[in-house]
Simulated scan of single mutants.
Amino acid sequence: MSYPIPAAGASAEELVKKSRFITLLAHTTGLDEAKAFWQQCREQHPGARHWCFAAVAGHPTDGQQYAMSDDGEPASTAGKPMLAQLLGSGVGEISAVVVRYYGGVKLGTGGLVKAYGGGVGAALKLLPTRLYVPQAKLVAELDYALQSQLDWLLGQFDGRCIDTQFGEKLNCTLTVPLTSAEAFGAELKRLNIRFSAAT
């Protein structure tokens, strides 16, 4: 369930037969963010000829979160090799944009595939990553006397209390790794702590 995601952005630049290729990588959660990053790169490089794009904007194996564009380059010479590099990395929630400033020399289809795919590959080598662990979110209601036991339980399951409401009883919004959610819920029941999935 866990997978690496970018901890920060990364970039690489290469000159190929007078054309300048600038590869930019960013952490993007979802296709809307990925497309916003693509647009941002276009605005930052208004004088470029092409702004080719690929994204694995969710879990690395979720094909619904893949996207790519050749942005005017010959079909399958830019977006496809860029996406192949992203998929090969196993990194999720990532977008790549390769900005091309045309130098007047045509590269041919093989040259373009190498330049676009190679640019993403070079940037990936510089990319810092961190592990993303999918979380379950719960709301628990408990007596104040049980707070220390809940805190101990959260420590055992690598969980966190992200919000607490103080009233007649404590209402805590909790997160725990999705893989541990069932066992964590069983422990809450054992302590007679009422809980439900957070909306």
Rank of each mutant, 00 (worst) to 15 (best):
P46A: 03
P46N: 05
H50W: 07
H50T: 02
F53S: 03
F53R: 02
A57P: 08
G58M: 05
T61Q: 15
T61H: 13
D62H: 06
A67M: 07
S69T: 07
P74W: 05
S76G: 15
M82F: 07
L83Q: 01
A84S: 15
L87R: 14
V91L: 03
G92A: 00
S95I: 04
V98Q: 00
Y101V: 12
Y101G: 06
G103T: 08
V105K: 12
K106F: 07
G111D: 07
L112G: 14
Y116V: 05
Y116C: 08
G117D: 02
V120R: 00
V120N: 00
A122G: 10
A123F: 05
K125G: 10
K125D: 15
L126F: 10
L126P: 04
T129P: 02
R130S: 10
V133A: 02
P134L: 09
P134Y: 09
L138N: 02
V139K: 09
E141A: 13
L146P: 02
Q149G: 00
L150W: 05
D151C: 05
Q156F: 04
Q156A: 09
G159W: 01
F166D: 11
F166N: 12
G167C: 09
L170Q: 05
C172P: 03
P177R: 07
P177Q: 06
T179P: 06
S180F: 08
S180E: 10
